[in-house]
Design a protein around this nucleic acid. Structure first.
Lengths: 218, 218
DNA sequence: TATTTTGTAAATGTTGACAAAATACAGATA
DNA sequence: TATCTGTATTTTGTCAACATTTACAAAATA
C-alpha cells in the first residue's frame, strides 16, 4: 500500500538540523564546531556528521581553517561580494523565467504576490513575510529552467539568509519591496525578458542599499 | 627549516585522483561508480571515498540518482546552461580585476600572454596551450579579489573542462583566441573596467559559437 | 498463468575502535 | 622575559565490521 515514509539518511538529517541551528544563530559566528560535539548533540556517530559538515562548508555557512571548522563570521565585505554575484545571476534568472515559465508557475507567481499583499496589509509577522519573499525569488529561479543557475542561486540564497540573520538581525524593510516584486512579476508574466531582468537588477540594488542603511545605523 | 611535506588526507587525494580520471575520460559518462569499486581501485577504505564522491557531486562531475552515483553525462543543453552563467560571472571578474589587480598579478598576466604567443607560434602541443588558456582565465578571476566569485568560477571551470573533453574531445581552436585574450588583458592592465568586461563577454560568446560549430560537424 | 512471497546479492548507511595529527600547556633553559 | 621542548589532551583521519535498503530472481501459491 502507500504511506510508508522512508526516513532520510542521517547525514541529510544532520545537514538540515545543523543548517537550521546556524540560521537560528544557535551557534555563534566564529565558534569552533567539532565533530564529536555535534555528534553528541544530535545523538549520532561522527560519520554522518562529517558529511553534513562538508556540505555546510560547500554552502559557505561553515569555514575551514587548517583542519578545524568554524561557524562563518561574515563581514560586510562578504555581503558586497555575494551581492555582486547575485546582481549578475538573479537577473539572468528573471530573464530566462520570462521566456520559459510554465502556466502552473505563472499561477503560483500570482498567488505569491497576492498572499504577500494581504500579509503586509494584515501586518502579519516578519517570519511569514520573509518566507513569502523567499518563495518569490525561488519560484523565479526555478522557472528559469537553467539547472546550473538554480544550483548557484541555492548557494546564494542560503548564504544571504544567514548573513541577514547575523548582520541585520530582525531589522528588515516591509513596505517598498512589494511594488518592486510586482514590477518583476508583471514583466515575467507578459514575457518581457528585458524589463524582467532590469526590474530584478533594480530590486537587488535597492535591497543592497537597504543593507547599507541598516548596517550604518547599527 | 623547511621542506617537510605534509601528505594530504586520503579524501583530498581521492578527490583529486578521481577528478583527474574523470577529466581524462577514464570513466565513461553515465557509468555507475560504487564506493567499493573506487575504494579498491585507489587502495583505501570507503570512508574517504565517500567524502570525495560528495565533493565531486558538488562539482557536478558526478550526479546522484536515488542512492546511486553516476558519471556526469553532459548534453549540449548543459553547455548552454553553464555558458549562460559563465557569460554573467566571468565578465564581472574581468570588471573587478581591472579595478583590483595587484602589480604582481599584472606581471603574471603579461607573462601568460607572452608565453601563449610563443607557444602558438612554436606550434606546441594542445595540452600546453590549453593549460595557458586556463591560467589566463584563472588569474583574472583571482585578481577580482571577490571570494564568492572565485568559488563560483572554480565550479564553472571544472565543469567546463570536463564537458569540453567529453563533448568535443581534442577538437579545439588555436588561432583566434590570443587576440581576444590580449584585448581583455590590455583593458585590465590600464584599469578600464567597462572595456575589460565587454571584451570578456565577446570572448565567451565567440567561445560558445565555436562549441556550436564543432558540435554541429560531429 | 498470474500474483505474491521469499531469498539472495550488491549497494549504501552507520558505528565504534584505533591511529595520526594538531594543539595546549607546563616546566626547563637561555 | 622569552623561547624552546616534551607531554598530555583534544581533534581529525581511517578502517573494518555490521546494519539496512534495494533490486531482482526464484519459488510458492492462488
Amino acid at each position: 500500500m502507500s504511506g510508508i515514509i522512508k526516513s532520510e539518511p542521517f547525514h541529510i538529517q544532520a545537514y538540515k538540523n545543523i543548517q537550521r541551528r546556524l540560521l537560528e544563530k544557535e551557534f555563534s559566528p566564529g565558534e569552533q564546531l567539532t565533530e564529536s560535539f555535534l555528534a553528541k548533540k544530535l545523538g549520532i556517530s561522527r560519520g554522518p556528521i562529517r558529511e553534513a559538515i562538508r556540505m555546510l562548508l560547500h554552502d559557505g555557512l561553515l569555514v575551514q581553517s587548517g583542519v578545524h571548522v568554524f561557524v562563518f563570521d561574515p563581514t560586510f565585505e562578504d555581503v558586497i561580494d555575494l551581492y555582486s554575484c547575485r546582481e549578475r545571476l538573479e537577473p539572468l534568472g528573471a530573464n530566462l523565467a520570462a521566456q520559459n515559465i510554465t502556466e502552473e508557475n505563472k499561477q503560483k507567481l500570482k498567488e505569491i504576490i497576492d498572499n504577500t499583499e494581504s500579509a503586509l496589509s494584515n501586518k502579519e509577522d516578519n517570519h511569514k513575510i520573509a518566507s513569502l519573499n523567499t518563495d518569490f525569488h525561488d519560484l523565479i529561479t526555478q522557472s528559469s529552467m537553467n539547472r546550473q543557475l538554480i544550483q548557484f542561486m541555492n548557494l546564494i540564497r542560503a548564504k544571504n539568509i544567514y548573513m541577514r540573520n547575523v548582520l541585520l538581525g530582525d531589522f528588515t524593510r516591509k513596505e517598498k519591496f512589494i511594488d518592486e516584486h510586482r514590477r518583476i512579476a508583471d514583466a515575467i508574466l507578459v514575457g518581457n525578458k528585458y524589463e524582467a531582468e532590469q526590474a530584478m537588477v533594480d530590486h537587488i540594488q535597492v535591497d543592497l542599499e537597504t543593507w547599507k542603511d541598516i548596517y550604518k545605523q547599527k
